[in-house]
Structures are given as C-alpha cells and as structure tokens.
C-alpha cells in the first residue's frame, strides 16, 4: 500500500498528471466505464431491496430450484433453463471478446460478423427469458402474488430479471447498430475500432450482472 501511494508510483503519477487521469483511455471508453459504475449502483440497489424484503417476509420463500425446473423428455431437471441461459450469455461474452480482438486487428468483416453472433445470442437469451416469464405467468405467478409462497418472490423476479432483460435488449440494439456501421466501413477513415471495445464493455457488464442474479436469485 505504501508503495502504491509513494510519489513515483504509476497510480499517483497518473492522477497528478495534466490533461488526462486515465492514460491512453479514450473519452468514450472512460465514459462507458463511469456509466457502468453508476449502473452497478442501480443493480446493487435492486439486489439490496430484494435481499431486504426476502429476509424480512414471514411467508416462506419459494424454492427457485423447483419453480424454475423444466420437465424435458420425462426428466424433471431443476433450473435447467436458467443454466442454458447462463451458458448462452457466457458464450456471447466470448464471441464479443473475440470481436474486440478482430476490431483491433483491423479485421472489419470478422469483427462485424462476431458482433452479429453476439447480438443473436443476446436475442435468444431475451427470447428464453420471455419463455420463462410466460411459463411463470401461466403458473399463476404475478407481481402481487404467487401460489408458491411470499408475494415478493414474483415482484422481485419480474423487477430484477425485467431490468436485466431491458439491459440485454438495449445491448442487442446497440451491438447491431455498431456492427452495421463497422460493416459499412464507418470507422475505416479514423482506423480506430475502439468503439467495439466500448460496446464490448457494456455487453460484458450485462453478463456480469447476470452472474450475480444467477447466484443470488436462482441459486440462493
């Protein structure tokens, strides 16, 4: 720690320098990071709200493992849909990371193609979420109550996954726009493909949030 704060550490030098504190970070990327920081607080507040109501209701909390189970080919498998959604989102993060790599390698076509794949995976995630919502609504889960236990189960489920789903949907649109622009060669002139990395930051963040939702809402 002492080393980190000493006068000649890179940390102190960067902060004490003129013009920019984040060396080599473009305006867009800096802004995206700061936005994600703010968004972290939004999701954390949602999850804190969820934690508090879950801990303070006297009704029993439904067993997520059961509620989200599917019967496939006669087998009753707990949480299987959620597991698949998790894998899809992780896969999309992987393709996104490769798109960033292609962008920096100036492989325009591949970058755009990988981004389209990412968007497709994202869209299928949203599709599965829609399926999950439909299933739960058919089973009688509503924001104000459900047949399995505490009413807040439904409220927080729709609120938290809904908000995350909105983020994914927005991300899909964002990725599509950027990918299209790359295809059309909009960034060719400046030769700077950092936009892919910025879009990637957002996309990975959405994945990151899902990691927490998966752990706290579905597994806990």
């Amino acid at each position: 720690m002492a080393h980190l704060l000493s006068e000649d550490s890179q940390l102190v030098k960067d902060w004490a320098s003129d013009q920019d504190a984040f060396k080599g970070v473009s305006w867009g990327k800096a802004m995206m990071w700061i936005f994600l920081l703010s968004d972290t607080f939004i999701f954390s507040s949602f999850l804190v709200g969820y934690m508090t109501v879950r801990m303070s209701v006297t009704e029993p909390w439904p067993n997520a493992s059961e509620v989200f189970a599917l019967t496939i080919a006669g087998h009753h498998i707990p949480l299987i849909l959620i597991a698949i959604m998790t894998f899809i989102l992780i896969t999309s993060s992987g393709t996104m990371a490769m798109a960033v790599n292609m962008g920096y390698a100036r492989k325009r076509k591949q970058a755009a193609r990988l981004m389209f794949v990412t968007a497709l995976l994202g869209a299928s995630f949203v599709g599965m979420q829609a399926f999950e919502w439909t299933k739960l609504i058919e089973e009688g889960v509503r924001p104000w109550g459900n047949p399995f236990g505490a009413a807040q189960f439904g409220s927080t489920f729709f609120m938290v996954t809904g908000f995350h789903g909105l983020h994914v949907s927005a991300g899909v649109i964002y990725l599509l726009i950027v990918a299209r622009k790359i295809q059309l060669g909009h960034y060719e002139k400046e030769g700077n493909y950092q936009i892919v990395e910025i879009a990637g930051l957002y996309w990975h963040f959405v994945d990151l949030v899902w990691v927490f939702i998966f752990a706290f809402f579905y597994l806990w």
Partner: peptide, 8 residues
C-alpha cells in the same frame, strides 16, 4: 478527468 488542457 480526460479533457483538461496542457499543464492543468
């Protein structure tokens, strides 16, 4: 953070 002039 990122757009100060020289010397600032």
């Amino acid at each position: 953070l990122q757009a100060r002039c020289r010397g600032m």
